[in-house]
């Protein structure tokens, strides 16, 4: 049985943007997604956590870019032409932040019904590991891991960065 942590929400049925990271396919609520961009020049920001790749110029706005691979502690790979930046709106505390996440490949927009969503699995003591998974979308031919991007990017690391700066 899935352990509900206070942070993790349960996925609601609806449209999800699915993307590939390593061998798995993940899903993001489509309403969180602002746009998808190809890879572009990223300016490194020193003294930030490993997974913060830097900042980009998004049509005049400077937004931070997070590598989801590094965030999930997956081995880094070289950027390919399929590497994408998904620009997402994250609620952080009371504000909406715009951030980019780097993924290996964007696949498609999926329509996932409520009966196709299973609760996130619990891996014993690793409750924290699954806290940003809102559910597993079981489709005919694959399983999509549904992410709560708010908690992914609001981890205590970002908190720590913000804290250390204030």
């Amino acid at each position: 049985m899935a352990v509900e942590t206070p942070v993790a929400r349960t996925a609601q049925e609806g449209k999800f943007l699915s993307f590939v990271l390593g061998a798995e396919e993940y899903g993001l609520e489509i309403l969180k997604v602002q746009e998808i961009n190809g890879m572009m020049g990223i300016t490194r920001v020193p003294r930030t956590p490993e997974y913060v790749r830097g900042v980009i110029n998004l049509r005049g706005r400077v937004i931070p870019i997070v590598s989801l691979r590094q965030k999930f502690k997956m081995p880094a790979v070289a950027d390919s032409e399929k590497t994408c930046i998904i620009v997402v709106q994250v609620s952080y505390q009371d504000t909406e932040l715009t951030m980019g996440i780097i993924v290996d490949e964007v696949s498609e927009v999926l329509n996932i019904r409520a009966d196709q969503i299973e609760p996130a699995p619990a891996f014993g003591g690793g409750m924290d590991e699954t806290s940003h998974i809102t559910g597993m979308g079981k489709l005919e031919d694959k399983v999509v891991i549904l992410l709560d991007i708010d908690t992914v990017l609001n981890g205590e690391e970002i908190e720590a960065v913000v804290q250390s700066t204030n």
């Binding site: 920001v45 003294r47 930030t48 900042v55 931070p64 951030m99 250390s164 700066t165």
Partner: peptide, 19 residues
């Protein structure tokens, strides 16, 4: 001057960004 966004804003040694 552009803000770097909350998550990387205020990193020691970096005041902001510019395009």
């Amino acid at each position: 001057i552009k803000s770097l966004g909350e998550s990387v804003q205020g990193t020691d040694g970096v005041a902001g960004g510019a395009i």
